[in-house]
């Protein structure tokens, strides 16, 4: 093969590779240009932050008689919880259901002879809030 022919072939290959690479880079740049955010349009997008305060259930019970002995047939259960809650008071001999218009509530509850376990459970009006409970023990003994 002639010298000139070989040189022409080599130059042709080099030129072909060079132009191919250039085309690839150019097309990449074009793609990048297309995906650019439109920050230069002077529009500010405000994402509102919504603060959700969880409703906390609270339950306070007068525990002055908890664990103690009484000679009375009933006790007064006094407490405080979220307004308009469903309050269930349960023992071995009685169950009572009440709703409180105000935070504080009060109820007379009967006692059985011996150990009385009394469970007070509160279901707040907001159904997404967690229920709470407290347990009291009081001993009704006659012959002391």
């Amino acid at each position: 093969m002639k010298k000139e022919t070989i040189i022409a072939i080599i130059l042709g290959i080099v030129l072909g590779i060079t132009s191919g690479v250039m085309v690839v880079f150019e097309s990449r740049e074009k793609d990048l240009k297309k995906n650019k955010p439109m920050t230069n349009q002077q529009k500010t997008i405000v994402i509102p932050t919504i603060k959700i305060s969880p409703i906390l259930t609270f339950l306070e019970i007068d525990e002055s008689f908890n664990g103690k002995i009484t000679a009375e047939e009933s006790i007064k259960i006094k407490g405080k919880t979220n307004k308009n809650s469903l309050i269930i008071i349960q023992s071995a001999i009685k169950e009572t259901l009440l709703t409180n218009e105000k935070e504080s509530f009060e109820i007379d509850f009967p006692l059985a002879l011996g150990e009385n376990v009394i469970r007070i459970t509160v279901y707040p009006k907001d159904k997404t809030a967690s229920p709470l409970f407290k347990e009291l023990k009081i001993y009704y003994l006659e012959n002391l």
Binding site: A92, V117, L141
Partner: peptide
């Protein structure tokens, strides 16, 4: 029911009862 000294109780009264669980 009775006086307790450390882990010893001198019983004045003893009542046999049932253990009730509420849950």
């Amino acid at each position: 029911v009775g006086p307790i000294l450390e882990k010893t109780i001198t019983a004045n009264f003893i009542y046999i009862d049932e253990k009730i669980i509420i849950g």
